[in-house]
């Protein structure tokens, strides 16, 4: 590795670089751009082909009353499907559910994931074993764990009732979790958090390795406690990873699907946008409407993510 062991004073490096940059602006910039395209294009072309091109087609079909049978005329309806979506109380309800799910699960996954990552980011005997154990929920299939959670929350004999009633005395009677909207979401959110903490832990672990250990030691010698060290040493270095995780989790939160489909099937007002969309498209064959729901959700998530991205960028620069 070319670590600058005998590095010249930083100032000289900077000025030398600036000189170089200025000179390079004419020729080097173009060379850099050409190289950049060589880096980006192989992947981007494939991405465009299998993601963006189908996405454009899906968008076009949201402007039609699309019939799935090949060769059957699909009338153009313009923005009708979008107007319908935003005046459809069931869709709006599903959005509310997704927002609640996201607001509950994202902070929990971040906090617990980060906490576990910090605990495991040190030379602790047995840490590999813990890393594996915490990752187990991530690798088990969504289908299997959704059915398992449904079972755990089953009203009478379920583990959830055993814990809430017999163990913690939080309720006097068994709770029928899946008969009310918000108790259903307790189960769904619990699954989301349970399955997600290992995932965010992993990314934070990867990010924490970039935090110089000697900085920690220096801070410790200066008398900084655990929280201070986290706040002033670890946090600044993982900020970028944190913003990535937040954005990905928010996207994932709005796109919650399999767990809801398998746990409640969307009954008792527990639809989320994707289960509602799935019903419209694959059950009722209203693909135009399903696509419109899909792009409405995309637009919403994009606005949220863009705001976050912009905000973290700004706070990182400060």
């Amino acid at each position: 590795m070319t670590a600058p062991t005998a590095a010249p004073p930083a100032v000289t490096v900077r000025s030398a670089l600036l000189r170089r940059r200025r000179g390079a602006a004419a020729g080097g910039g173009r060379r850099e751009a050409l190289a950049a395209y060589a880096f980006v294009l192989p992947g981007f072309i494939l991405y465009a082909l299998v993601m963006l091109y189908p996405a454009v087609q899906t968008f076009l079909l949201s402007l039609r009353d699309w019939k799935i049978t090949p060769g059957v005329d699909s009338p153009w309806v313009g923005l009708d499907n979008y107007i319908r979506a935003f005046s459809d109380p069931a869709f709006l309800d599903s959005l509310v559910n997704a927002v609640v799910y996201t607001l509950v699960t994202v902070p929990m996954q971040i906090v617990i994931g980060l906490f576990l990552a910090i605990l495991l980011d040190s030379k602790l005997p047995g840490r590999v074993a813990f890393r594996v154990l915490f990752y187990l929920p991530v690798v088990t299939s969504w289908v299997v764990v959704s059915l398992l959670f449904r079972y755990i929350f089953s009203s009478d004999e379920g583990l959830a009732n055993f814990v809430t009633v017999d163990l913690l005395h939080l309720a006097s009677d068994n709770v029928s979790w899946f008969q009310e909207r918000w108790t259903s979401f307790i189960a769904i959110c619990a699954l989301g958090i349970w399955k997600g903490v290992g995932w965010s832990m992993l990314i934070f672990l990867a990010a924490l390795t970039a935090v110089p250990k000697d900085l920690h030691e220096a801070a410790a010698i200066d008398g900084a406690g655990v929280f201070k060290r986290f706040r002033y040493v670890s946090l600044p270095s993982i900020r970028s990873a944190l913003s990535v995780v937040v954005i990905l989790l928010v996207i994932g939160g709005f796109n919650v699907f399999i767990s809801v489909l398998l746990i409640t099937g969307g009954t008792n007002d527990t639809q989320v946008p994707l289960t509602y969309m799935y019903d419209q498209a694959f059950q009722f064959l209203d693909f135009g409407y399903g696509s419109a729901i899909s792009f409405s959700l995309t637009a919403l998530v994009l606005v949220v993510s863009a705001a976050q991205y912009w905000w973290t960028r700004r706070s990182m620069r400060n």
Partner: peptide, 15 residues
């Protein structure tokens, strides 16, 4: 029983 109100959960009919 109230399992008629929820698709899942509760004491299954067979049990």
């Amino acid at each position: 029983p109230d399992i008629i109100l929820g698709d899942s959960g509760g004491l299954a009919t067979s049990d």
